[in-house]
Design a protein around this nucleic acid. Structure first.
Lengths: 218, 218
DNA sequence: AGACCGCATTGATCCAGGTCAAGGACGTTC
DNA sequence: GAACGTCCTTGACCTGGATCAATGCGGTCT
């Protein structure tokens, strides 16, 4: 699928597109002057991914980070024996990979794969770094962003090391409650495929199935 | 132990002390102009901790971060049932708690306890934040610092979720090799009390003991 | 419709690591 | 040096979750 020598799944971003506006409103960019943002935006690319397509593997050289416009992106670790641990599933409106910009070894520490057909905005580290050097507010926002990520990882470590699988699942369900009507019943939507939820919780699909039944029996 | 109404274990930092120089050389401050650093330094305090003394608990309001001059500080998570998970043991020359400065909820996400009698330098967040706002290089160094921390946590999650206890222990030993003479033998020093190493590896002391024997039998 | 396929459930069994309890092996105090 | 406390090791057993192997259950392709 080529047009004028360009791969269709990686196109410059049109400054009139809704995607442009979405990125513009992201908290990492929201405080920028229009010219500053435009300068960044000219280097951004639109990436379309099929379901199951891998955007990058762990260890790949990292020159960009990404904003999710539509779809779902799974960030995971994969062991030598092929076991996969889902670290995070990134929803539309959020970015991922921005922390890598500052690492000495500029390699992605995780693998990113589309769980659904997805549209991303690719943001080159280079221009972003240049922008940060002149924009203290953006710097502070990014510090807050990294700090939040760090805290989320600490909570994950806590879950893995001092909570059992049952507890992890019930927290997960609590975090995904969709409507909480007045009474004491609530509905949680488990949108993701079971095997992704299982990996997110560091358990096997069989165990997830059994735990769900056992929790439902209460 | 009072003198002039001051608690002896929390004194202003003397600008001629060796501690002053150590903090000065830390990478978060090394790039600062002398006046900038001095302005920060006047608000710093020296803290002496006994072995076993807790500096702060998880959830305590966080107004400062710390530089370790001597001793060892354990950062840990403690579950409702009293189980403890050691996240990290901070050595002299390193800082901890700096990431909390940027969190919305300004509470320590971990508990800090002295494993040995320790001397720390307490650095108030306030002045540090002010300094960052005017010093882009310090900002960039801190971004790199947080990014490195984040990566370390990701590796920890990987260890916990896709490696078994035996593998975690051998990585730990590898990371603590002290001298590697020409041949294929090396010596690792396991300085810390066994129960701390066990908690660091998220296993019980009994299991650590058994695994050490089993690895030694090879 | 039937054949096929990828995902979820269920059952049977296994095993890494936890738990509980009983010794060592030290250093400290009297 | 006896008594004590603390930390480490060892043994016997238990259990949460993994593994292996069927079986069910929609989709979708022909």
């Amino acid at each position: 699928m080529l047009r004028n020598g360009l791969v269709l799944d990686s196109l410059p971003m049109d400054s009139n597109s809704p995607l442009y506006e979405s990125v513009r409103r992201h908290y990492l960019f929201a405080g920028l002057d229009e010219p500053d943002f435009e300068q960044l935006a000219v280097a951004m690319k639109v990436r379309e991914l099929d379901q199951g397509e891998v955007l990058f593997h762990r260890g790949d050289p990292a020159h960009s980070f990404y904003f999710v416009d539509t779809g779902l992106i799974e960030l995971s670790l994969i062991s030598a024996t092929g076991d996969k641990k889902t670290l995070e599933v990134v929803n539309p409106g959020r970015t991922f990979g921005e922390a890598v910009t500052f690492m000495l070894e500029v390699k992605y520490p995780v693998t990113a794969e589309a769980l659904q057909p997805s549209r991303l905005c690719e943001i080159p580290n280079r221009g972003f770094l240049d922008m940060l050097r002149t924009n203290r507010d953006a710097c502070m926002r990014l510090l807050a962003d990294l700090s939040r990520h760090l805290h989320a990882r600490v909570r994950e470590i806590e879950n893995l090391s001092i909570q059992n699988a049952r507890h992890r699942l019930s927290s997960y369900i609590m975090d995904h409650i969709v409507d909480a009507p007045g009474g004491d019943q609530a509905t949680a939507r488990l949108e993701l495929p079971r095997h992704v939820i299982a990996s997110r919780l560091s358990i096997k699909p069989e165990t997830l199935s059994r735990l769900l039944r056992s929790l439902a029996d209460e």
